[in-house]
């Protein structure tokens, strides 16, 4: 069964007098455990595709399936449940909750899921250690560097062991060393936990980590390369 399947997705935005085709009949099939990069120049449609896969945005037409379940016809509450249970998000701008500490940010999703306190603490401690933030658990986002915040965001995305992690330009605000460390972490999580990763990026170095590289232009898939095979 596919982790993600998109069938003939279309999405058009209106900008002034112009209609912009963000997704133009896009179909993809991503197997479980794949490490996929979506690459496109700005406005190429990668973030729109990522949002459609994550149920954050509804396509104008086409179908989206997550782990075999069609999600493009679900309501807001049902989409929220899908995201809560099956998808982890890493955003370009970290997007941590400023009033919560690193540990509380990591625990947030688990708490909403109803994971018992002891298990939450155990998992958050382990994942924060794994992303190299041991000792910084009680710091709030404002007290951490960009790299550290992005690690917390990654820890939050994977702490509840989602089947799918969607990352939108996760290295855009990081220096090269931190970006490499983050990608190494993604690779490790992908290999050890068989987590499916779909990363939207235009960072060439990030693309080298991906097993599959999908290139987009003007809302269409123009290239789909299996880099492992290559």
């Amino acid at each position: 069964m596919s982790a993600v399947r998109c069938v003939d997705l279309c999405k058009t935005y209106r900008q002034g007098d112009q209609d912009i085709k963000a997704l133009d009949h896009v179909s993809i099939d991503i197997a479980k455990g794949q490490f996929v990069c979506l690459s496109a120049p700005s406005g190429g449609g990668k973030t729109t595709l990522l949002n459609a896969i994550g149920g954050l945005d509804i396509p104008d037409s086409g179908e989206v399936y997550i782990a075999g379940e069609r999600i493009d016809n679900l309501n807001k509450g049902e989409l929220a449940d899908i995201r809560l249970k099956q998808i982890g998000f890493v955003f370009q701008a970290y997007n941590l909750i400023p009033v919560l500490s690193a540990r509380e940010n990591v625990e947030f999703v688990m708490q909403v899921q109803g994971v018992p306190s002891a298990e939450r603490i155990k998992k958050s401690t382990a994942i924060l250690k794994e992303v190299g933030l041991e000792g910084l658990e009680d710091r709030r986002p404002a007290e951490m560097s960009g790299g550290q915040q992005q690690r917390v965001a990654v820890a939050r995305a994977v702490a509840s062991r989602p089947a799918l992690v969607l990352a939108d330009e996760p290295t855009a605000n990081l220096d090269s060393k931190t970006a490499d460390e983050l990608m190494a972490l993604f690779t490790e999580l992908n290999e050890h936990h068989n987590t499916t990763f779909v990363i939207a990026t235009h960072d060439q170095r990030v693309m080298t980590y991906a097993g599959r590289l999908i290139r987009m232009l003007d809302g269409r898939i123009v290239d789909d390369i299996n880099q492992r095979a290559a």
Partner: peptide, 16 residues
């Protein structure tokens, strides 16, 4: 608004 968008993206229902 942005923060609410984040927590909705993380899976919190709008009602909550």
């Amino acid at each position: 608004t942005r923060e609410f968008g984040i927590v909705m993206a993380l899976g919190l229902r709008p009602g909550r």
